[in-house]
Design a protein around this nucleic acid. Structure first.
Length: 415
RNA sequence: GUGGAUGUAGCUCAGCUGGUAGAGCUCCAGAUUGUGGUUCUGGCUGUCGCGGGUUCGAGCCCCGUCAUCCACCCCA
């Protein structure tokens, strides 16, 4: 048997209706902030990600789907979408458009990791980027928007974590200090963290290994290294959120795995997700455009929501708010003449906006059974008796009551 | 890449200390001819993940392998 490859999956009804709901809600809400959709290719030149995401990141070093194309160029399935959006921004000179560029996207991303709860090799992100301003108010609005979005789709009990990872200068000093201090206590660290202490000291900060806890608590906070400007920027973001009544927790140890983040970073976690409890992550990336070769500065901030994880959380915590598909009319015909008449009725009903299921096969009893299981609100039963009177037998499936109506009266039931 | 758990009908699972497979749901047909949601009757579906081994005999034991899930790593 041919099966979906490891880490990929089929999204089937009724789950797909939740996906549609989540995606449509994003379009609606982001639109109110004047975001517009951008669609970039699913694959790009490998260099885009190695330069954008970071040569040394796990994503680039071991998780990308990369292959050599027939002409010898190296191509990669996108592991994330921010780099592509910035690439498109540069390529099409979007900085010349009036105002800030506010772009949202949704679609599949690919990372070759070991699958587990909430983690897939093909997964879906809904994200947004606001490019062209360094104002902390922009950070605040982006974060507020995504919080409002989660509220709008009915997610509850999520927690917003924010931090500032500093600009290049202050972060450089911080990393150097961490590296130095960790070198002194290396023996006390777990094996994983001994390695990270050298390769990526920031990662030591959010280690889950209890063995490392004593050392971690002695480490300085990034906030001690932030320069005045960065500190002020972060304070302004927090002030925005306070004004907006968005609750958050400052987590000085929150670091992110993509190299391009500067200053504000944030994450939203939810308890229903198991170990992979992050529903979305995001942050500011003031230097990304330049590192991709842009001659114009294009500071920006964005986030991406793990749609798989959002859907999962909604299904575990807010099942009642997820709309279920309805069938307004199920049409049952006895005989060919009745079927033709019903098909015409179906056309009229659908023109008026009703959801109509024509039952093509089976006896009356079986058809009613099926209509019932499909959740039909009403069934129309049509046989020779009704035909001869030019009427339809309309049955209310909840009450069981039925009455014979002319076509106009049937159509009037819509809405 | 590392570790743990699990793999029995379409789905959820049972199967005692080894004696060649079961339940519920689903699906199909029926309970006098045009009436569902309850009930009843009957029926279909399995190389017990795959390959080896031990044994008179293995779904149950051993080895290998694959897959899935969970966790680590990392992230969405």
């Amino acid at each position: 048997m041919i099966r979906a490859v490891k880490g990929t999956r089929d999204l089937l009804p009724p789950d797909t209706s939740v996906w549609n709901y989540v995606e449509q809600s994003a379009r609606d809400l982001f639109g109110r902030y004047r975001y517009q959709e951008i669609r970039t290719p699913i694959f790009e030149q490998t260099e885009l990600f190695s330069r954008g995401v970071g040569e040394e990141t796990d994503i680039v070093t071991k998780e990308m789907y990369t292959w050599e194309d027939r002409d010898g160029s190296s191509l990669t399935l996108r592991p994330e979408n921010t780099a592509s959006v910035i690439r498109a921004f540069i390529e099409h000179g979007l900085h010349q458009q009036p105002g800030l560029q506010k772009l949202y996207y949704m679609g599949p991303m690919f990372r070759r990791e070991r699958p587990q709860k909430g983690r897939f090799r093909q997964f879906y992100q809904i994200g947004a980027e606001m490019i062209g301003s360094e104002s902390p108010l922009v950070d605040g609005e982006v974060i507020e928007m995504v919080v409002r979005y989660l509220e709008a789709v009915g997610l509850r009990d999520f927690k917003l974590l924010i931090n500032s990872v500093g600009d290049a200068e202050s972060r450089g000093r911080y990393v150097a200090a961490l590296r130095e201090q960790l070198a002194g206590v290396k023996e006390q660290l777990s094996a994983d963290n001994q390695r990270r202490a050298e390769t990526n000291p920031l990662r030591v900060l959010d280690s889950k290994d209890p063995q490392d806890e004593p050392v971690i608590t002695t480490l300085p906070s990034i906030h001690e290294f932030l320069n005045a400007e960065t500190k002020e920027h972060f304070a302004a973001v927090c002030a925005y959120l306070d004004d907006a009544d968005v609750s958050y927790e400052v987590r000085p140890r929150l670091v992110r795995g993509l190299d391009y983040y500067t200053r504000t970073t944030f994450e939203i976690v939810h308890g229903a997700l198991g170990a992979q409890n992050s529903v979305l992550g995001g942050g500011r990336y003031d230097g990304l455009a330049e590192s991709l070769g842009s001659r114009v500065r294009a500071p920006g901030i964005g986030f991406s929501i793990g749609a798989d994880r959002l859907v999962m959380s909604l299904q575990e915590t807010a099942a009642g708010t997820i709309p279920v598909p309805v069938v307004d009319f199920a049409l049952i015909s006895m005989g060919d003449a009745a079927m033709r008449r019903n098909l015409a009725l179906a056309r009229s009903l659908r023109r008026k906006g009703a959801v109509v299921e024509v039952l093509f096969d089976g006896k009356l009893k079986r058809a009613l059974d099926l209509a019932n299981r499909l959740g039909a609100r009403r069934t129309v039963i049509l046989g020779d008796d009704e035909l001869s009177r030019g009427a339809f037998m309309v049955k209310d499936m909840a009450s069981g009551e039925q009455s014979e109506l002319g076509e106009a009266d049937v159509l009037n039931l819509v809405g």
